[in-house]
Amino acid sequence: MNITIYTVGKIKEKFYRQAIEEYEKRLGRYCKLKIVEVSDEKTPDHASDTETRQIKDKEGERLLRQIKDGTYLIALAIQGKKLDSVAFSEKIASLGLHGTSDIGFVIGGSLGLSDAVINRADYLLSFSYMTFPHQLMRVILLEQVYRAYRIMSNEPYHK
């Protein structure tokens, strides 16, 4: 299975990079993982609704250019479906059983995802009603993907 995480912005904090590297290493035995970063737009303080939409649209265009045709795209969006870890694992396993070999997860920038990206997504997934920094969300997503593979493999993982 190929897992690609499409994300806006680079990770600046060392502790996030270290966590990401650890989960990349752990996931290596379960799937082929790739992280694709696109540049973020500078957001002015007190951006208008129009400016916010334009920023999300520019970031969205960059993301969409990176996503291959045939990729099953899961967008992380607050309005998405909330799954527990077992259901998330079952979702990934089911995609594989039905012939999906490329799964992409998309994480928006600080303003979220454009409508175009949301519309391209095959599935909307939410981890919480809360908003998380997109850098932290990358770590959380990788941890949950790793947990999903451990569950699929009937391997122990802390609860």
Rank of each mutant, 00 (worst) to 15 (best):
S153E: 15
F15A: 11
Q18G: 09
E61C: 04
I92E: 04
M130G: 09
G60Y: 03
K91M: 14
H98N: 14
E22A: 12
T43D: 01
I151L: 11
T52M: 12
Y146W: 13
Y72G: 01
R26D: 01
E37P: 01
T131G: 12
L64D: 05
I55H: 03
A148T: 11
K82M: 13
S94C: 10
Y149T: 02
K58R: 15
V36I: 14
L124S: 06
L111I: 02
K81F: 00
G70N: 10
Y23A: 03
A121V: 05
F127D: 04
L111Q: 08
A148L: 02
M130D: 10
S126T: 10
G99R: 02
L136V: 09
L76E: 02
Y23Q: 07
R53H: 12
R138F: 01
Y146E: 08
D57F: 05
I3K: 01
K42Y: 11
Q18M: 12
E61S: 10
K12W: 04
Y157G: 12
M137Y: 03
I151R: 07
A47F: 08
H134S: 06
V86A: 07
Q79G: 07
Y23L: 03
G112M: 07
A87H: 11
M1D: 01
N154M: 12
T52I: 15
E21Y: 04
N119E: 15
Y146N: 05
F88A: 00
E59I: 09
A93E: 14
L95W: 09
A47D: 04
V145N: 05
Y149F: 15
R120S: 11
I5V: 13
L63G: 06
L83D: 03
N154W: 09
F15Y: 15
I55F: 04
V86T: 14
V106Q: 04
I92N: 01
P156L: 12
D49S: 14
S128M: 12
K10T: 13
A47H: 09
E143F: 05
Y16F: 15
R147A: 06
R53D: 13
T100H: 10
V106A: 08
I103Q: 07
I3R: 05
L83V: 01
D69C: 00
M152D: 02
D49R: 14
V145F: 10
H158E: 11
K81I: 10
S110K: 11
S48K: 13
L141V: 01
I103S: 05
A121H: 08
H134K: 03
C31D: 05
I92L: 15
T131L: 10
L27E: 02
L142S: 05
A87P: 00
P44C: 04
S128R: 05
I3D: 02
E37Q: 11
S128F: 06
F88R: 00
R62T: 00
D122S: 13
V117E: 02
G70I: 06
F105R: 02
D84H: 14
M137N: 02
D84Y: 00
E22H: 13
I151M: 07
I151K: 08
E21V: 09
D84L: 07
L97P: 00
Q66C: 10
K10V: 08
V117A: 03
K81H: 13
Y6C: 07
V139E: 06
F105Y: 09
R29N: 06
K159E: 14
I103G: 00
N119G: 04
V8Q: 03
E13K: 15
E22L: 12
Y30E: 08
S128E: 06
T50R: 14
E155N: 13
E22Q: 14
S94R: 09
K34P: 00
